[in-house]
Design a protein around this nucleic acid. Structure first.
Lengths: 136, 136
DNA sequence: CCAGCATCGCTATGTCCTATAGCAATCTAG
DNA sequence: CTAGATTGCTATAGGACATAGCGATGCTGG
């Protein structure tokens, strides 16, 4: 069958992203986390007291969509909220969140290492800069 | 704010795919097509008489999800079905589908060219092989 | 000082893409 | 000829994402 699609970088980008995302989701699923959960967790871990809005801006997640995400993390006992003023709420990890973050980081690091390992050596160094040029 | 995420290839892959997919969707939207519609259209155009199942296998779309996709294309007068035997149905482009495919191809080609143009020259040749290693 | 605007967190809703389970009909291989 | 695979389909669910709007609060410039 003729299939002209795989030779298109944009198409390959979609397929590669889907394939790898599915794999990461599966691995994070064993921790009870989604990708967005894990990235939010990482961000809170690196920036105690950060607000929901700030996370949303960093991860390109609408404020509206942060609500159920943070609710999940809070219901899971991973983060807690302290009012900064009457409007903003600072987020920080609970101790459970801290250890969950460590597990998540291990999974992510392993995943990233596996990704890189799959790429032929001569192309490896070029992937990140090329991708960054596409979204930053 | 500390944000360790952008340095991860897997994360950059997701972000780049999202950003570029949104752009392509917008451009194809002006033709009344979705990404999946366009890729199916391309495949039918390159393989007259192909079956829904075969398209699904090539594009990694479940048979169940091909149904509304093909219904859209058929309702739009872009494809038509002829029974191959009592079970399989061959798909081919109508003349309207043919010209719509030409428009879609133009949009896609333009999009791909824009993508590549955004990548620094020294990284360009490495993107496609690196991506292919991640999903094929 | 305070009025107007921006921001915060949130509800409600809709779309798109994908996934699973199951079904009747048909094809195919041993 | 029967058993298993395949085809196209229904129904349903979930995840990711987007928009519109709301009440409340914070900030800032006249």
């Amino acid at each position: 069958m003729r299939d002209p699609l795989p030779s298109l970088p944009g198409y390959a980008l979609r397929r590669a992203a889907n394939a790898t995302a599915a794999e990461l989701s599966a691995r994070l699923g064993e921790l009870g986390l989604r990708q967005s959960d894990a990235s939010a967790l990482i961000l809170v871990g690196a920036n105690a007291g950060i607000t929901a809005s700030a996370i949303g801006r960093a991860l390109d997640i609408q404020r509206a969509n942060m609500v159920p995400l943070l609710k999940r993390l809070e219901d899971g006992g991973l983060i807690e909220r302290q009012a900064i003023d009457g409007k903003s709420v600072g987020l920080s990890l609970t101790s459970a969140g801290d250890s969950k973050l460590a597990e998540a980081r291990a999974v992510v690091d392993r995943f990233e290492a596996d990704l890189i390992a799959r790429i032929p050596a001569e192309h490896r160094a070029h992937l990140l800069p090329a991708l960054e040029a596409l979204w930053r």
